[in-house]
Amino acid sequence: MSVIPSRLELSGVEKSFGTKRVLSGVDISVAPGKSLVIIGGSGTGKSVTLKCALGLIKPDAGRILVDGRNIERLRGKDRDTTLARFGMLFQGAALFDSLTVWENVAFRLLNKNRMKRAAARDKAIATLAAVRLPADVGRLYPSELSGGMQKRVALARAIAADPDILFFDEPTTGLDPITADAINDLIIARTRALGATAVSITHDLASARKIADEVAMLHEGRIIWRGPPSALDQSGDPRVDQFVHGRADGPIQPAL
């Protein structure tokens, strides 16, 4: 095992919904400043893994450790400060449609950090610039933006309060290849600029190869393979092979 202490670690995380077992012992660990990408088919528990890590879903068993501390045991201020270190980019952007773009980006600054509106707006506009959006986008509402722009705004909102652990849920899904690559570039640039640790889930292999320091494959609620992106093509695991080459025939049954 690695000697560097993990920034984020999930160990033996299990979760069932009713009789359906989604996670049956997920173990992942990410070293500080590294980027882990979890790949896997639809319905293999990628989103649930991410939501457990974020504290949005309570796992049935297992531990979630941030710098070695179990976040479920944290209470009050300790818990708040730990959760404030997280930033999340949702698959559908999940922007608040009753707020303008800049209010979305500055949401945590305004509501949690109680920053003055003018200062929060300046910071929001600077953050929008960091994801290459002009300042006047700030006045618009999320519904007035294209899908790619919404993703950028969502990325800006995730990074605005300078988190040091970032989560990306299918960051490129639903985008054309060029926009998707632009989002990949932004994710890499912003994560580096913050010195943040990143955990992404995706089924877009081009994106995985680009943003990952390490790739882990989730299948049937367990991590079945992990390695550097360069090793994806020689994994030696027929299930990873099937996924990488996108074949319907193989050990994994397509989810229909």
Partner: peptide
Amino acid sequence: TMRVTEQIDALRTLSA
């Protein structure tokens, strides 16, 4: 709608 579009989850990840 906020629930099904994950805006409620987003609120929680933004410490609200």
